[in-house]
């Protein structure tokens, strides 16, 4: 277990070395300041547009950091042949994958947390009200989303090249986020296969609670949050097992 954390810790430092993280953080800060100061027709007590655009940017920037990072961790090791040195150590292949996954996940969560914290500050400053439970739920859902996305990207990276991994990861993410909600109507028409495909696809749309925060809907019940966390854990676990299978087959 210590070896797994060592691999992860090595990757964790990357977030503070990455220039793109600082660039995106600064860009987010500038955009939030602009949104805070924007006054439409002299009306100052509107805040939903700021929350919508701000949250959209937080999720987008987190994706821009997490997907390429998770995509390259295994591929870089293979390309630089350091994977052989790693495999020569008393480590199982699955431990390597778990270590890489934890490191990538930390980078994704860390960047999302920084971005989200900035957004919360701006949002509370603009709105003047802190609806803690809604912010918490959106934050947890965001972490779950990144958990699934990181695992899925890592899994893809075992089977595909860097560019293919990124293309597929973004494509699956955006298509499922936009159309995942309406998929069951068409897939359930095919009795067993359609239902199986519906269950097998990563339902990123489940983690999108932004509407609740923007439009001040009531928080989701506790069972929904628990179901989201459980789904994220199960799906990412399945992705890691899939990655393990692929990794065992390759680079021998």
């Amino acid at each position: 277990m210590k070896a797994v954390f060592l691999i992860a810790a090595n990757l964790m430092r990357e977030i503070f070395r990455k220039k793109d993280f600082y660039v995106l953080l600064l860009l987010l800060l500038l955009l939030l300041v602009y949104l805070l100061n924007a006054a439409f027709f002299g009306i100052r007590d509107v805040f939903r547009y700021m929350k919508e655009i701000g949250l959209g940017l937080v999720f987008l920037f987190s994706l821009l950091i997490s997907v390429p990072f998770a995509a390259k961790v295994m591929i870089d090791e293979a390309a630089s042949k350091t994977i052989y040195a790693l495999l020569a150590k008393p480590l199982s292949r699955f431990q390597v994958i778990i270590g890489k996954f934890l490191g990538s996940l930390f980078v994704a969560w860390c960047s999302f947390s920084f971005f989200f914290f900035l957004f919360v500050l701006a949002s509370v400053y603009k709105q003047g009200v802190f609806t803690g439970i809604l912010y918490f739920q959106v934050y947890v859902a965001g972490l779950c989303l990144l958990l699934v996305l990181t695992a899925m990207t890592l899994c893809l990276s075992v089977y595909c090249t860097f560019s293919t991994t990124i293309t597929l990861a973004y494509m699956i993410y955006f298509l499922m986020s936009w159309f995942g909600g309406g998929l069951h109507e068409s897939l359930y028409k095919i009795p067993l296969l359609g239902q199986a495909v519906y269950y097998a696809l990563p339902h990123f749309e489940f983690f999108d609670l932004r509407h609740r925060l923007i439009h001040l809907w009531e928080p989701v019940p506790a069972w929904v949050m628990l179901a989201l966390v459980a789904y994220a854990c199960l799906y990412s676990g399945a992705m890691l097992l899939c990655a393990r299978y692929g990794f065992n087959k390759r680079w021998l």
Binding site: G181, H184, Y198, E205, F206, D208, A227, L228
Partner: peptide, 18 residues
């Protein structure tokens, strides 16, 4: 009845319906 039995549909509804 279909929606009651399907956890995914219930979850989707609980999150997005308003």
């Amino acid at each position: 009845k279909e929606e009651d039995a399907d956890i995914f549909l219930r979850l989707d509804r609980a999150i997005h319906a308003h």
